Simulated assay, not measured.
Amino acid sequence: MRCYWDEEDIWFYLEVDAEGWVTRQIELEGPELTPIAAASLAEWQQAQEAGRLDEYERGFGMTAELPVSEWEGHDPVPLTSEEFEEVWDSARRQITARPR
Rank of each mutant, 00 (worst) to 15 (best):
T63F: 04
Q45W: 09
T80M: 10
G61P: 03
D54G: 13
A97T: 13
A91M: 08
R52P: 00
E57A: 14
W88H: 10
R98D: 04
I95D: 04
P67D: 03
P78H: 06
L41N: 04
T34D: 15
E83C: 05
E70H: 12
R24E: 00
M62H: 13
L79Q: 05
G73P: 04
D89T: 15
A64E: 08
A47I: 03
Q94K: 15
E32F: 09
T63L: 00
G61A: 08
L41E: 07
P31Q: 15
E82P: 04
L79S: 03
P67S: 04
A64K: 07
Y56I: 06
E82Y: 04
E86T: 15
A47Q: 04
W71H: 01
G51Y: 07
E85S: 13
L66N: 15
R52Q: 14
A37L: 02
E32Y: 07
E29D: 11
E70F: 12
A50W: 09
E72L: 06
T96E: 07
G73V: 09
F60E: 01
E27T: 08
P67I: 00
M62K: 13
E57Y: 12
R24V: 02
W44T: 11
E72A: 06
R24A: 00
A37F: 01
L66G: 12
P99N: 14
D89V: 11
H74F: 10
E70L: 14
F84G: 04
A38S: 11
A37V: 05
P35L: 03
R24T: 00
D75M: 08
T80V: 10
I36G: 02
M62C: 13
R92I: 04
R98S: 04
R52W: 08
Y56C: 07
E82C: 05
H74A: 07
V87E: 08
R93I: 01
E49N: 11
E43N: 08
R52V: 06
V87G: 06
S90K: 00
V68K: 03
P76C: 02
H74W: 10
L28K: 03
L66E: 15
E70W: 11
P99G: 12
L41R: 09
R98V: 02
S40V: 02
E82M: 07
T34F: 12
L66T: 14
D54E: 15
R24K: 11
E27D: 13
G30H: 10
L41F: 10
E49C: 06
R93T: 05
S81P: 12
E85A: 15
L79W: 03
W44L: 11
A97D: 11
G61C: 07
T34Y: 11
S90W: 00
W71I: 01
I95T: 03
P67K: 05
Q48V: 07
I95R: 01
A42S: 15
A39D: 06
A37H: 01
W88R: 08
A47S: 00
G30N: 08
A38D: 02
E85D: 15
A91E: 03
M62A: 14
G73D: 09
T63N: 02
E85C: 06
E83S: 09
R98Y: 00
